[in-house]
Amino acid sequence: MRLRGRSMPVAALLACLAVMSACSAEPEKPSLDEAAKQLVADGEKLVASRELTAAGTVTVTERASKDGELGCLKGQVQRFFRAQGDLAGPPHVHSPGNSAGLMLSALRNLGYDKVIDSLDLRDENLSVTLAQNPKTGITFLVAVRNTQKPNIMIVGKTTCYERSE
């Protein structure tokens, strides 16, 4: 009898854990079209951000308008957002590290997490930062260099999705 008395609280605890697990499960990944719309929206916010405009100017060259297979498994596709431009003023005015750091701040304000430590990918002439949105799986790579134009290169991409027929 004593064992049965304990089984009810254990069952209640297991039920609570199951309910909490269901609530804290990973959110469902957006569709490719939804992710592409979010990619473009976030890319345009980055391009228009005060952090980027403090460093220089860029022009959007691709707005996730077509499927790409590069980097995906066979039968999968993803979409890209691309922009490029130049630092404001002569090369010594803006350091690549500071400029990339500013753009990472803008991405963090949009809900992105830093994926890599930019100190590992930085020298006095080049800095690279990579950030990903944990909810959408969208990733942005920002590269800033002062030795070659374009000085600023931005590539955003969705995760890979099964090709829809």
Rank of each mutant, 00 (worst) to 15 (best):
A143E: 12
T57Y: 13
G137F: 13
D67P: 06
L107Q: 08
D120L: 12
E26P: 10
L141P: 06
S95L: 08
L52A: 09
M20Q: 13
E44T: 03
A36Q: 00
L87C: 05
K66M: 15
N125C: 02
L104S: 02
L14P: 04
K74M: 08
V47R: 09
D123L: 02
L119D: 15
M1W: 11
L14T: 11
G75K: 11
F140Q: 06
S127V: 02
T147N: 13
S24V: 10
M20I: 15
E34P: 05
A131C: 08
S49V: 00
S105T: 11
G43K: 08
V144E: 02
E34C: 05
R2P: 01
T159V: 13
F81E: 00
I152M: 03
R122H: 02
V77N: 06
L107W: 07
F81K: 02
L102P: 04
R2V: 00
A35T: 03
P90S: 13
V40M: 04
T147H: 11
A64Y: 05
G111M: 10
V144K: 01
L110P: 01
L121N: 14
L107V: 12
R122S: 04
K114Y: 11
R6M: 12
S24M: 08
C72D: 05
G75M: 08
S105E: 12
L3E: 06
S21V: 12
